[in-house]
Write a protein that binds this DNA or RNA. Structure first.
Length: 565
RNA sequence: GCGCGCAUAGCUCAGUGGAUAGAGCGCUUCCCUCCGGAGGAAGAGGUCCAAGGUUCGAAUCCUUGUGCGCGCGCCA
């Protein structure tokens, strides 16, 4: 029996639930936050007369300073179990905590309906800083409860055209998610599915052929200047077959997409060709569906009974014409991912694919898999704005804005930060004027500036990269800005865990901005260089920890952390 | 019509059961003999779409309604 005990933070309106830990857990023995959390859980369990703290017990960072450094609702949650009123329970928990934490805690006050407001000593804050620096590059890493082998399929833009806005958001999200999952300890495979098979490929080849011969593209063909460019780049294009043109054209488009992703700093490990599934794996998947009794013939077509697993209607695998559908090969693709040992599949799809979710999960289940281990993530649309006006067309070409256009315009850092900034399930506006701005108005510059400023301070302090070592215990009374900054730093591992659990990398951009703002307050209140030696050493250590955590946060989003700007 | 998503400050958005709902932008007013002013401080600005329900406690969970987006093909 394991009851969840969660720590949350609550400051400036944010409330995050994080890592769940059961009472008495020994993990992160040297992590002051984990120790505090464990002490609260243990005290609550003891007072409630239970083995574990009651579910729903939280440790929060109150936004109101009068509510202490940390606060817990343990007493209110435990009261029903303890058959006592919350304030009495709170007093008992406070007594237990005082005994358990000793000098680390300076006060535990009962407040309001039964909140317990805790204040920690400066020595405890010193231990937080020591923990961050001791952890070094692994601070916040490996927080995944149980490491999994996860496949993240993203972008998968059709190789019949350039990457547009939606692909940019998809790429920024998928790459950031992959990075943070890997950082948290999962084994992650990043994959791009190349749709190089089927009717669209034929239309693509026909379009190139038409342009190569100076004809108009067919009614159902692909329009756009890039078709002319591809036709011109293929030797003797006018005399090649449409099929050959399609093959060469797709190769070129993939190279273009690869180049665009490179410019964004997006890494793809596996470029998976749909066509290669036809070597037998495709037939194998269809056979498995048939043997499982999930497919049937009707009206000369082959159908999958997806309604068996919650879809609205059954779906066609093989058309009456004999051609297979995109859906059919996609099923084989998912079977292949599973066969390659990935236990969890995350598919990052565009908004127009949300109707595809139910059928794909049904198909995955038909293959004998747990549908919960296939997670389609739907990216909502992106609108571009400029000075409040909606812009969707490129000024240069008059066509839809491509990712390359945006990279030319606002750069990779701004593109990635802005695209990840919003939760994937909300339609977002990207303000080009703001993204272009090279000032504090622009959030990505704000965070990068804080990092550069810390680097400058450390240069001035002559700190260099010397041994991080254990910083001296604070010899001075800490400034409230120092405590606030250390609390924010200490929150990082929980933030990583929560970002992973919710598949929500946009949290990282918020955390980065909050950490940068917290540093700015520290910078305003606390001088580093020129202070007495012990004070300077302690503050340089704070700078080092903040710099590294800011850099890590930016890196997980795929944004650079410049040492000077 | 059905399905999925969304609805929070003038704008763009955080916030998936806790105390007085936050940030950025915009607006108003301040701060450079100061380790980077690419910065900081203060202020104005809210029926958290509506109505019910669950709870000691709801922006958050449940129902219904409204509005917006997207999808509903033997396309991909």
């Amino acid at each position: 029996m394991r009851s969840a005990f969660v720590i949350g933070c609550r400051r400036q309106g944010r409330c995050s639930i994080a890592q769940t830990v059961s009472a008495g857990s020994n993990e992160h023995r040297d992590d002051p936050i984990a120790l505090l959390r464990a002490a609260v859980a243990s005290a609550a369990a003891s007072v409630a007369g239970a083995v574990d703290a009651p579910a729903g017990t939280t440790l929060e960072r109150p936004r109101n300073a009068a509510h202490g450094d940390f606060a817990t609702n343990a007493a209110m949650v435990s009261a029903p179990v303890a058959r006592d009123n919350p304030r009495n329970v709170a007093n008992k928990i406070a007594a237990e905590l005082t005994a358990a934490l000793g000098d680390d805690m300076t006060s535990a006050e009962v407040a309001g309906p039964g909140f317990l407001n805790l204040r920690l000593s400066d020595d405890w804050y010193g231990a937080v800083l020591a923990h961050v620096l001791d952890s070094g590059a692994s601070f916040g890493a490996g927080v995944a409860g149980r490491p999994e082998k996860i496949n993240v399929e993203f972008v998968s833009a059709n190789p019949t055209g350039p990457m547009h806005l939606g692909h940019g958001r998809n790429a920024a999200y998928g790459d950031a998610l992959s990075r943070v999952l890997a950082f948290a300890g999962h084994e992650v495979g990043r994959e791009f599915y190349i749709n190089d098979f089927g009717s669209q490929v034929a239309r693509f080849g026909a379009s190139i052929g038409a342009r190569a011969r100076g004809e108009e593209v067919p009614e159902d063909g692909y329009q756009g200047g890039y078709i002319d460019e591809i036709a011109a780049a293929i030797d003797g294009a006018a005399s090649l077959s449409d099929a050959e043109l399609a093959t060469q054209g797709i190769h070129q488009m993939i190279e273009r997409i690869r180049h665009t992703l490179d410019r964004m700093g997006v890494e793809i490990e596996t470029w998976f060709s749909e066509r290669t599934l036809l070597d037998g794996r495709f037939e194998q998947a269809l056979q498995a569906l048939s043997e499982g009794g999930h497919s049937y013939e009707h009206d000369d077509a082959l159908w999958l009974r997806t309604t068996e697993f919650g879809d609205d209607k059954d779906r066609v695998l093989r058309r009456s014409s004999g051609e297979y559908t995109y859906f059919a090969t996609d099923i084989a693709y998912h079977a292949d991912k599973r066969a390659r040992g990935f236990e969890r599949l995350i598919d990052v799809w565009g908004a127009d694919h949300h109707g595809y979710v139910a059928r794909m999960k049904a198909a995955y289940q038909s293959l004998g898999n747990d549908p919960d281990l296939l997670e389609p993530v739907i990216m909502q649309l992106v609108n571009l704005t400029e000075g409040g006006q909606r812009v969707q067309m490129s000024k240069r070409s008059g066509e839809f804005v491509t990712v390359d256009d945006l990279l030319d315009d606002i750069g990779a850092d701004a593109l990635r930060f802005f695209m990840v900034q919003r939760s994937h399930d909300t339609t977002m506006d990207l303000d080009l004027a703001l993204a272009r701005e090279q000032s504090d108005k622009n959030p990505v510059y704000y965070v990068q500036y804080a990092h550069a400023r810390i680097c400058s301070i450390m240069r001035k302090a002559g700190a260099g990269e010397g041994p991080a070592g254990a910083p001296p215990a604070p010899g001075h009374e800490l400034h409230e800005s120092e405590r606030a900054l250390l609390r924010r730093l200490a929150e990082f591992p929980d933030e990583i865990a929560e970002t992973c659990a919710r598949r929500a990398p946009h949290r990282l951009t918020i955390y980065g901005r909050d950490l940068a703002a917290e540093f700015s307050a520290f910078y305003r209140d606390c001088k580093v260089v020129g202070e007495p030696e012990a004070v300077q050493a302690f503050r340089v250590a704070i700078c080092r920890a903040t710099r590294d955590t800011l850099a890590r946060t930016l890196d997980l989003v795929g944004v650079s952390a410049p040492q000077s700007m």
